[in-house]
Design a protein around this nucleic acid. Sequence first.
RNA 1: GUCCCCAUCGUCUAGCGGUCUAGGACAUCAGCCUUUCACGCUGAAGACACGGGUUCGAGUCCCGUUGGGGACACCA
Length: 484
Amino acid sequence: MPSTEKRISEKRMTVVTRFAPSPTGFLHIGGARTALFNWLYARHHGGVFRLRIEDTDRKRSTDDAIQAIVDGLEWLGLDWDEETVFQSARSERHAEVARSLLGTGQAYYCYASQEELEEMRQTAKKEGRPMRYDGRWRDRDSSEAPQGVDPVIRLKAPQEGETEIVDQVQGTVRVANEQLDDMVLLRADGSPTYMLSVVVDDHDMGISHVIRGDDHLTNAFRQTLLYRAIGWEAPSFAHIPLIHGPDGAKMSKRHGALGVETYREMGFLPEALRNYLLRLGWGHGDDEVISTEQAIEWFDLNGVGRSAARFDFAKLSNLNGHYLREAEDQRLVDILCADFYGEVTPLGRKRLLAGMAGLKPRAKTMKELADLGQFYVSGRPLVFEEKAQKLISKGGADLIAAIAEALQKVENWNEDELEKSIRALSEQREMKLGAVAQPLRAALTGSSVSPGIFEVAAILGREESLGRLSDAQEQMQTFSISAD
RNA sequence: GUCCCCAUCGUCUAGCGGUCUAGGACAUCAGCCUUUCACGCUGAAGACACGGGUUCGAGUCCCGUUGGGGACACCA
């Protein structure tokens, strides 16, 4: 009723945002984006980004999940400020606020049973009314309370009028108070509900901006009512659209959402995921490739779109390929050895590093990069892919021998000399260069696809290259004689 | 069922009344490059959901329809 015209003056207060996941599973992609937006908003404004673990549901919360969330945020490079708040540790404070509301008449004890509540929902549904608690204990005296029933504390919410929130993304949204019921603040066992905890914690933590998923929009109304009842000023809300799966439905743990660690395992780089997530629902003109530094400078709530976006692996892969090409070779080698290969010898690492420039542009993910570079770290003899076997068989033992012979004569084992030698051989045999280069590639890499073969041979070195050539020669007989 | 939100190429989006014969990116297709595969470059195809208004003028504002999504716990 108070004309909500109260101007939220652009005060110079510090921006404090938070990411508040419940540790019931991994950090999924939607949560990661919410965290990213909060982080960017805080960093952009030189504010504070905090982490709060909403573990009030002790039955479903696990330490593993907390660890997964922390690991996920760290991997993504989203660092938070100040100490992490564990909601479960604050239940006494939450209960205290609920009780104080009892004192001011803004809340009341309710003794309704589960059965009664279920019945209310059924009737409401049947009568086409919103499914809500009917307020039967609103004005009843506790003296009427049934014996042996532990009551819950409910908020005495206004039943008429409407509640409005001015959302930074969704704009002004109002809902009739009739739609909102007297929500439970404190459970029968004395534990606080989510709605209460969130409001108290956000207030106590000094959160100025609540940026979260769209699915919380209706909660914002209830929370607004609570803020009002307590007499606190509500933070600024920004409800960002959800990420949908390729099928257009909300991504959830049940529905296609993967933990960030899975993206890591699939070979995506954190900076690529950050860039992709940023562009999912946020835009800055035609800019696509946006560095994190640039993102901090540009990020802004009014760049956030209002409609849900579908997750698209193809675009993420493309972006990943871009960042892969930009990445330092040494870093790539380190990731490969740590996450994708088993034991890698120092020599293998050296070759991998030397060959990285040629490998990089051919991969979109670290996984692909790992497969592509496998031949640099594998010991002899190589396992030959089917296509490689065919290439070698087709060329014939004679050709492999000729190649080996030609290479043996190369004095300076470098890319140029090697190329000259093979070109000469192909001319001499009146063959196209490819007809010679492909069998050579197959013998040196075990594959039909690789970086430039002379570069590969140069990096592998004379001894290794000739060794692989003779391996191919020896193993030829064992190749399934698939003429084609 | 009730309430809320959304609606531009297949996907992500630019567009904040005229400069839109609607731009970019990914994906797709064609070509160039080439020892393979990529990378890179060039080009092609491809969208304002529909219907009413408002206005000199609407992708841009309003209403409705349709379609999608979300929320309705002593879960968070």
